[in-house]
């Protein structure tokens, strides 16, 4: 059965605390932390961008299963911060993992869910025997305008998933999507920073789609929330995934292990995939995972995943999510603004 053959994560080592950003904009850090349930976020080094994060995550995925790059016959990189407007990030990744030239590659954009859209595409290619293995990456160095609420959460990081039929560490038994034209968040062509509909991003955006996709998947699988060991949801802040999980009937034990947003912020296209990786890092053979992404604009992809016995021999061969959570260097707002090229 088609599933996850390997996975790899990368998060830059730099962090900035909510207090440091709030100090600049004369806001109350405690009320922001309480409102968002986020204490700090990740930030890139000066020489890091979506392409470098995608390559590091891809290499960590390759390393875990000792796969040759030539075996990867499709690469999709989902991001809303590709370094080029025209020229694929996926070709840079392909060259850096020695997958060229016999493969198909493309970049995806669907706010924070472009990485899971890539997984669905790879599943299609693998299921139809058009590719032996495909790699889907979600990576971002997400943008928040100076002073905007997004600046407190827009983090950097990514994860890569290799999808195939052989030696899978987790079977993907079903995936389903829920998509509508809901304008809750956007960035116009040529603009540096995105804009959003404030509270409109909540009920009609995140909750409607995450709950819609997750319910639809459980209906199709004929499962109930209590049948899952882990529930992973997109993490734009610390509040939304918890509220969605509770509304759906999941308990704290099921969703708490995937919550990394309070330490690295919202890594956009990387968010659900890093949350899923943190669960794979700890899961046991036979565990059932439900994972649902969310991308503004808007849509959600939901996955029913079952861990196999292969997980134990594979996951120790690459750095776990905790490794990236622990290694951190704190930046001042000035250093952060320099790294993010907010000061040009």
């Amino acid at each position: 059965m088609t599933g996850i053959v390997s996975y790899g994560v990368y998060v830059p080592k730099y962090r900035i605390k909510v207090e440091e950003i709030a100090k600049v904009w004369k806001e109350d850090p405690e009320s922001i932390k309480k409102g968002l349930k986020v204490n700090q976020k990740s930030a890139p080094g000066q020489d890091e961008d979506t392409a470098t994060i995608a390559v590091e995550a891809a290499r960590n995925a390759i390393k875990r299963q000792e796969i040759s790059g030539e075996e990867i016959e499709a690469i999709y990189v989902g991001s809303e911060s590709h370094p080029y407007a025209v020229k694929p990030t996926a070709t840079i990744v392909a060259e850096a993992i020695k997958a060229t030239p016999n493969l198909t590659a493309a970049d995806y954009e669907f706010a924070c869910k472009a990485g899971t859209a890539g997984i669905q595409n790879c599943m299609g290619l693998v299921n139809s025997d058009m590719a032996k293995m495909g790699m889907a990456i979600g990576a971002d160095v997400s943008q928040g305008a100076p002073g905007d609420a997004l600046e407190y959460t827009a983090g950097s990081g990514g994860a890569a998933y290799i999808i195939g039929k052989e030696d899978v560490i987790a079977k993907i038994k079903k995936t389903t999507s829920y998509t509508t034209d809901t304008p809750d968040f956007w960035r116009r062509e040529g603009e540096r920073y995105p804009r959003h509909g404030g509270r409109f991003t909540g009920k009609p955006g995140y909750f409607s789609h995450v709950i819609g996709a997750t319910k639809s998947l459980m209906d199709k699988m004929d499962t109930e929330p209590n049948e899952y060991d882990y529930a992973v949801f997109h993490q734009p802040n610390g509040k939304f995934p918890v509220r969605a999980a509770k509304k759906l009937g999941f308990n704290k034990k099921q969703y708490q292990d995937c919550l990394v947003v309070n330490k690295i912020g919202n890594t956009y296209s990387g968010s659900t995939l890093i949350g899923l990786a943190s669960v794979l890092d700890e899961s046991s053979p036979g565990d059932k995972i439900i994972a649902t992404s969310y991308g503004s604009g808007a849509g959600s992809d939901s996955f029913h995943i079952e861990v196999t016995s292969k997980i134990k021999e594979v996951r120790e061969k690459g750095p776990k999510v905790n490794y990236f959570l622990e290694e951190s260097k704190y930046l001042s707002y000035g250093e952060y603004a320099r790294n993010k090229e907010k000061v040009r």
């Binding site: 470098t52 590091e56 370094p83 750095p319």
Partner: peptide, 28 residues
């Protein structure tokens, strides 16, 4: 070795990527 941006041709020019070096982490 780590994969990083080495530089750029200009603000609207090509980006150059390649290898730089990073200290080995505690877990490696």
């Amino acid at each position: 070795p780590v994969f990083r941006k080495l530089g750029e041709q200009s603000k609207d020019g090509l980006l150059f990527y390649g290898v730089k070096f990073s200290p080995i982490g505690k877990e490696e």
